[in-house]
């Protein structure tokens, strides 16, 4: 018998007012220990989905459960969840440390269970943790928000764009923290519009576009579902025009020093044959199965 999923979302639908469907019949599940990336461009419904999971917004339709408990505002099981939702938010006239203390105590558990020192350690704020939050930079707030999500060593972390606003070095640090935390068995659901982020950090991916599920599975599965070819040729312009006109090729994009063709039926050998036949010299042909291609293909179909 399979264990209860940590997160189970079935047919989640959210319509704001009479207007747009922010999330449209979305279903996915997250198993214990997985690091799942909710991937999609801005406006895909990622934040709405995370907010609904945390009980912040009422779904128009569908059901959600966390640790087997149906999600409602303020349910007890939220004590096992740490979250960062659409940027950090703190009381500006109190210190970073005081903010974390009050956040923790609002949940009704003693401060001794919060592991606040470890969380502050991970945040890397150092002595700044004693300063008022209104003096913090955007990056410092983001790191304090990350530390807040880690309070009490939650079994499930829900992180909305966790590396937003961080510099490259801090991004690497957060990524390493996430992998370390994930390695201890913590389940993580994070959203990102950055493919590289999900590719580097996640074991599984749920691709969202315009509120709809495009695809889900392991990063390898989603990547493999899309065929593409990377080519280096002596005449990129001629090759681009030639390939774009070829049946079975979805699109051709420049990817210096070569180009990338997303395939829809054509085989790589067809490309080579066409190019050679037209007098273009081909130096390199390799399959390129990055998540980025998969993402572009999945989302591109529906792009306006």
């Amino acid at each position: 018998m399979e264990a209860t999923p940590v997160i189970e979302v079935t047919g989640l639908t959210k319509r704001f007012g009479a207007g747009v469907l922010a999330v449209d019949d979305l279903s996915f599940s997250v198993q214990r220990g997985q690091i799942v990336g909710l991937l999609g461009p801005n406006g895909a419904g990622k934040t709405t989905t995370l907010r609904a999971l945390l009980g912040l917004i009422r779904p128009t339709g569908g059901t959600m459960s966390i640790f087997g408990e149906t999600v409602r505002p303020g349910i007890a099981v939220l004590s096992r969840v740490g979250a960062l939702v659409e940027g950090p938010g703190f009381v500006p006239h109190l210190s970073g440390r005081r903010n974390l203390e009050l956040f923790w105590r609002a949940g009704g558990r003693p401060l001794s269970e919060s592991h606040i020192e470890e969380a502050l350690e991970i945040s890397g704020l150092g002595p700044s943790a004693e300063r008022k939050v209104k003096t913090y930079s955007h990056g410092m707030r983001q790191r304090l928000g990350f530390a807040q999500a880690l309070l009490g060593k939650p079994e499930l972390l829900i992180l909305d764009e966790p590396v937003n606003g961080l510099d490259p070095r801090q991004i690497v640090e957060v990524r390493e923290s996430l992998l370390r935390i994930g390695a201890t068995g913590t389940t993580i659901l994070l959203s990102s519009h950055l493919l590289s982020e999900v590719e580097h950090t996640c074991s599984h991916v749920v691709v969202l576009h315009r509120g709809r599920l495009m695809q889900s599975g392991t990063v390898a599965e989603v990547t493999a579902s899309v065929a593409s070819a990377y080519l280096e040729v002596d005449n990129v312009d001629a090759a681009t025009a030639l390939l774009a006109a070829l049946p079975g090729v979805r699109s051709v994009e420049s990817s210096p020093p070569g180009l990338v063709a997303l395939l829809d039926g054509a085989h790589r050998s067809d490309l080579v044959a066409a190019l050679v036949g037209a007098g273009v010299r081909v130096d390199t042909v390799t399959p390129r199965r990055s998540l980025e291609d998969a993402f572009l293909e999945l989302v591109g179909e529906h792009a306006v």
């Binding site: 912040l56 505002p73 303020g74 979250a83 939702v85 949940g107 807040q148």
Partner: peptide
């Protein structure tokens, strides 16, 4: 939002 994702009604 952070106040309301705590296990408090």
């Amino acid at each position: 939002r952070y106040l309301l994702i705590r296990p408090v009604t």
